[in-house]
């Protein structure tokens, strides 16, 4: 879809919601919904997106939408999708008249890496036809920036503060994409709102896939990451350019996961000199400030760079 066509698509997430200025979730959700191809039902886990868009009696959602709890977006989606299938089979029930209904589940990193992992795994294993969109802002932002399994090493959060002894979170980010790919589902992709046409294309592929599809969106959070709200798109771009969050998609072809890099990660793979140092990304965020002040922690910056390099190399082994 071209930018011109995108602009013509209706906004299914209406303006006027109460997400923060510069919130990556708002931009991402709006773009995700630009890919909608027909009758669609949305379910969302508890989190910023849910609380800020549905404060009763207002709502920002221009499609049927349901939230029930934190850990069960994938289970709610399973039920919606199954009810539609049953009604189709019977030729009875309110959804029976539709040729197809797309089901989208939105959840944050807390609702995916941590508390919702079991429900997600179950739904993927059972093969429900739905798209799970992970809005990864790398901490429990809705409750006040607590660390999650998606929080990167060294990031300061309110439950992994940078103290005099411990420099922020001690664990590395959980490899959620590999966990999902291991379920052998038809389609997995990483996206960033900084690359909107890529995002919409992949979301459409995810909707078209028969069976479960997983979209991992990297979602900068100005409040939680401590950066100016006008920098959301730039920071998202930097995450891709440093290869911290490469853009790729993975299709299951003849039982094998086939990884393909997307632009600009593909051009970085071909021209490694274009890969930018992780320090450029880290220094722009207050959550990593303790790596630079009061004294510079070259040891930790180096460790993070090595981790990024290793992960990137491992991706290239699979994607090329």
């Amino acid at each position: 879809m071209s930018l011109r066509e995108m602009a013509k698509q209706p906004d299914l997430l209406a303006p006027g919601h109460r997400l923060c200025a510069g919130c990556g979730e708002a931009v991402t959700a709006r773009l995700v919904l630009k890919a909608v191809r027909g009758p669609t039902i949305v379910t969302a886990a508890t989190g910023c997106l849910e609380v800020a868009t549905t404060i009763f009696p207002y709502t920002a959602w221009d499609l049927p939408w349901i939230h029930t709890a934190f850990e069960n977006a994938a289970a709610n989606a399973s039920g919606i999708e199954a009810a539609f299938r049953a009604m189709k089979r019977k030729g009875r029930g309110p959804l029976a008249k539709y040729e197809h209904i797309d089901v989208i589940a939105f959840a944050g990193d807390g609702g995916t890496y941590d508390i919702g992992l079991q429900a997600l795994s179950g739904a993927l294993e059972r093969g429900h036809d739905f798209v799970y969109v992970l809005l990864d802002n790398e901490a429990y932002m809705n409750t006040g920036i607590q660390r999650s399994g998606g929080t990167p090493r060294c990031a300061a959060t309110t439950t992994s503060p940078a103290g005099r002894v411990i420099p922020g979170k001690r664990e590395w980010k959980k490899p959620i994409d590999e966990i999902v790919v291991a379920h052998e589902i038809p389609y997995v992709a990483t996206v960033s709102a900084s690359y909107p046409t890529d995002l919409i294309r992949k979301m459409r592929c995810a909707l078209e896939a028969e069976g479960p599809a997983f979209i991992h969106a990297f979602v900068p959070c100005p409040r939680g990451w401590r950066f100016p709200s006008e920098q959301t798109i730039a920071l998202g771009r930097l995450a891709v350019q440093t290869c911290l969050f490469p853009l790729w998609e993975c299709r299951l072809e003849e039982g094998r996961p086939r990884y393909t890099l997307s632009s600009p990660s593909l051009s970085i793979a071909k021209n490694p000199e274009r890969k930018r140092p992780i320090e450029e990304y880290l220094e722009k965020q207050g959550r990593f400030r303790h790596l630079f002040r009061p004294e510079r922690r070259d040891d930790l910056i180096k460790e993070i760079q090595e981790w990024v390099d290793l992960k990137w190399e491992r991706l290239l082994e699979k994607a090329l």
């Binding site: 039902i41 379910t43 349901i66 029930t68 709890a69 069960n72 289970a75 709610n76 989606a77 399973s78 039920g79 919606i80 999708e81 199954a82 009810a83 539609f84 049953a86 009604m87 029930g93 309110p94 959804l95 429900a119």
Partner: peptide
């Protein structure tokens, strides 16, 4: 949770 999704979609669960 699955029953809730199904009933919200208008089914019987």
């Amino acid at each position: 949770s699955t029953c809730i999704g199904a009933e919200a979609a208008g089914g019987r669960a």
